[in-house]
Every structure is written in C-alpha cells, then in structure tokens.
Amino acid sequence: MNEIFEIFSAVVGTFVLGAFSILFGLSVKGIDRKISARMQWRIGSPLRQPFRDVRKLLLKESVLPKNAVSWIYNSSPVISLASLLTILLFIPIGSIPALLGGSGDIIVVLYLLIIPSIAIIIGGYSSGSPFSSVGAQREMVLLISYELPLAMVIFTLAWRLNILYPSYSALSFETFQKFPIWNSVSFLGFIGAGIFLIVILLVTTAELAKVPFDIPEAETEIAEGVYVEYSGRNYAMFYLADAVKIVVLSAIIIAIFFPYNLSPLLSQYYPVAPWLGYTIDILFFMFKTIIIAIIAMTFLRTSLARLKIDQIVKVYWFHLFTASLIAMILIALDTMGVF
C-alpha cells in the first residue's frame, strides 16, 4: 500500500513539477526580455510575451523538410524537453526534497544535462540544411568546451564535502543541501568556491546558448543554425526546453551554492505552519532563480558581442580551465589544512 502511494505521489509530483518549471521558465524568459530591453533603451515586450509565443507556435504548422530524417527530426525536441524535465526530479526545490533523490544523483544529472544538447545536435543534422549542420557542429564544439570546467566544479566540491563528511553520500544534492559549501570551508576554500561560482555561471550562459556563446544559433551568421528548419510544434518544444533549462541550471547552482531556505530562519521568531514554510521556500527559490538567470543570462547577453568559435574554446579551455584549476588547488590546500 505504501509503495503504491509512493509511486502515485511520484507521478503526480512529476506532473506538478513539469507544469511549474514550464510556467516559471517562461516567466523568467519574459523577465529576462524586459530587463534586457530596458538596458537597451527600449520598452520591450510585455512579460507574458513568451506565453504568447508558445501559444502561437503550437497553432502553427510543423513543417518537415524534404531531405530530413523524419523520426529523428520529430523526436529530438521531445527528447530535449523530456530529459530536462527529468533532471528536475533529482533536484531539491526550496525545502522540498528531490522526488527521486538518492546517492549519486549528481552524476545522473550531469549525464542528463548533455542529452538536450545531443538532441539538438542530432536534430540539427537530421534536418538536412547546411545551416543546421554548421549549427550542430558548433553546438558540439560548445558542448565539449564547457563540459570540462563544469565537471571540475562539481566534482571538486563533492570531493571536499566527502572528505569532511565521509558518512554521507558525496555525489548527492542532499549532502550539498545539508552542508552548504560556504560553511564547510575556511578562507582559501571560500575563495576557491567563489571562483567556481563564477565559472559555473559562465558555463550556464553557454549551456543556455545565449550571447556571447550563442554560436549554435547565431542569427546573423547561420540563421538560427540548428533550429533553422524547425517550426510549429517542434520549435515550441525547443522553446519550452530552453525555458525549462533556465530553471534547471539555476536550480543546480542553487542546490550546490545557495541551498539556504528562509523558513528555518523565520521559525526561530514565529511559529511557521509547514505549508507556509514550503510556500515561502518555493518563493525564495524562484527569487534566487531569477537573480541567477539575470546575472548569467541577461547581463551577459546585453553587454557583450557574440564570440567566434575559436575564441569560445579558448575562453573555456584556457581561461576557465585555469581558473578552475586554481580554485581546485585552493580547495585542496584548504582540505590539507595548510592555513
């Protein structure tokens, strides 16, 4: 009986989480557009514009190019969205624990994060347009570029926590949730974690494929690249996947770096009902998501020009890799207790 209830709650939770992340992701997109417009001396579209876009895209015809491989072409948007929604099941939202949490969920999340990019690459190649082929190549290079710094950030921090608290599962968001990284390290480690935060914010920009790292789409160069042939429902899926991706990546950063909640703090002063505590924490989570999205996406894309592919590889493999290496050494020194 208990098992059935668990399965039931997981299914319902998945639906609720999916609906929440899509709606919230689209709202974040709207906020991003508005802020960006204001920074550019424009009024900008209303906050509900992304919802209108999706509604319109869903009404439009989905065109299948003549030389496209139809089943791959049609399935890759769905795979992209589905894998992103799956990631959310592993990440704690506010004070609500992850639906499918457990040991080693970080590794699952890291693998699932690659799937949307792979889906875009395969979809791009299968659409049979030279522009999307170039876009897919670029997406592949981008993927290879940012994976290394991303892995360095997550595994170094997990290693640090594992040494501090060997009895807990290291590669789990639960551990990160229980022992916020900033409280677990001394001065050197604090600097190291700060560098890692900057690195992961820049990785987020590339994961979201926004300027200056939007080369797979690069409107003026290759006409939206990988998405050039997608239209209607299929493109709406990619659009939703993009919105969910913002929530997912912010949630990962929140889970690793800012796992703080407001309700424990408030309950020291007032008695907080559990439902109110959850609501406050979810609202606080949304607030943190918006802040991260604005820093990693809006500010960067408004204040920089698009880089070229070789420049991007240089940024990730040279600059960010060096930064991560320094941060890694700092955290290692911290672990050894040099200071």
Binding site: Q40, R42, V211, P212, A218, T220, A305
Partner: peptide, 16 residues
C-alpha cells in the same frame, strides 16, 4: 554592424 556581431545593445544605442 553591431547587430551583425550579435551586439544588439550597441545597435539600439547607436540608432537612438
């Protein structure tokens, strides 16, 4: 030119 290199902010600034 700014728009061509993906720098829309400068595009809006110079047109303003």
């Amino acid at each position: 030119a700014a728009h061509e290199i993906g720098f829309d902010t400068v595009f809006h600034y110079s047109w303003a």
